[in-house]
Simulated scan of single mutants.
Amino acid sequence: MEIKMPKLDVTMTEGTFLGWLVPDGTTVEEGEDLYTVGTDKVSADVPAPTAGVLRYGSAAEDETYAVGTTLGTLEV
């Protein structure tokens, strides 16, 4: 399952990836916070949509990505 840049509000078109909250290869539970995203209005921790093993993608900290860009994956 792909982990993507979320759309935090109706006007959001991009966000800044602020970093992972758990190490690569960690087994996570549904609802566990995986990473932090920032916009000009807010920063938010984004939870896992399902349980699985987190695998980092090519997302770099403090880089801006369009909504829907794949940041990593969850192996379920």
Rank of each mutant, 00 (worst) to 15 (best):
L18W: 06
E75K: 02
G38W: 01
Y35C: 07
T26Y: 01
G52Y: 10
T39E: 10
G57E: 00
K4M: 06
M1T: 15
L21Q: 07
V76I: 15
V46P: 00
K4R: 10
L74T: 04
K41Y: 04
T39R: 08
V10P: 07
P6F: 08
E29V: 06
A59L: 00
V42M: 12
Y35V: 10
V28I: 15
T13K: 12
V28D: 09
V53R: 05
G68S: 03
P23A: 15
V46L: 05
L18C: 07
A60T: 15
A60L: 09
E2I: 10
T16I: 15
A44G: 10
G38E: 11
Y35F: 14
V42G: 11
M5Q: 11
L54N: 00
D24Q: 02
T39N: 10
I3D: 06
K4V: 15
E2P: 04
V67F: 12
V46R: 01
G25N: 08
T26N: 02
L74V: 13
A48V: 08
V76N: 13
G52Q: 13
T27V: 15
V10F: 02
L18S: 03
S43E: 14
G31C: 04
S43C: 02
E63H: 14
W20D: 07
D62K: 09
V76D: 10
D40I: 02
T27N: 01
E30L: 02
A51S: 14
L8C: 05
T13D: 05
Y35T: 14
T50Q: 13
A48Y: 02
W20G: 01
K4L: 06
V67L: 06
T36P: 03
M12D: 10
S43D: 09
L8D: 14
E14N: 12
A60K: 14
T13Y: 06
K4D: 09
V10R: 08
G38L: 06
L34A: 04
L8E: 05
G72S: 05
A59I: 04
E32K: 11
K4H: 11
L21H: 05
V28H: 01
V22C: 02
E30K: 08
T26V: 09
M5T: 09
G31V: 04
G57C: 01
F17V: 14
S43I: 14
W20P: 12
L34N: 11
V46T: 00
P47K: 04
D45N: 12
A44M: 13
L71Q: 01
A51H: 11
E29G: 12
V37W: 07
M1N: 07
V53S: 11
V37R: 08
Y56Q: 10
L71V: 13
P6C: 09
D45I: 12
L54I: 06
P49M: 06
T26Q: 00
M1G: 02
G57P: 07
V67G: 13
D40L: 04
V28T: 02
A60M: 03
T70C: 11
V22W: 04
P23Q: 10
G57L: 02
P6H: 07
T73S: 11
G38R: 11
T39D: 05
Y65R: 13
E75W: 07
S58Q: 15
L8A: 05
G31A: 04
E2G: 03
T73L: 00
E63M: 12
T11D: 14
K7N: 12
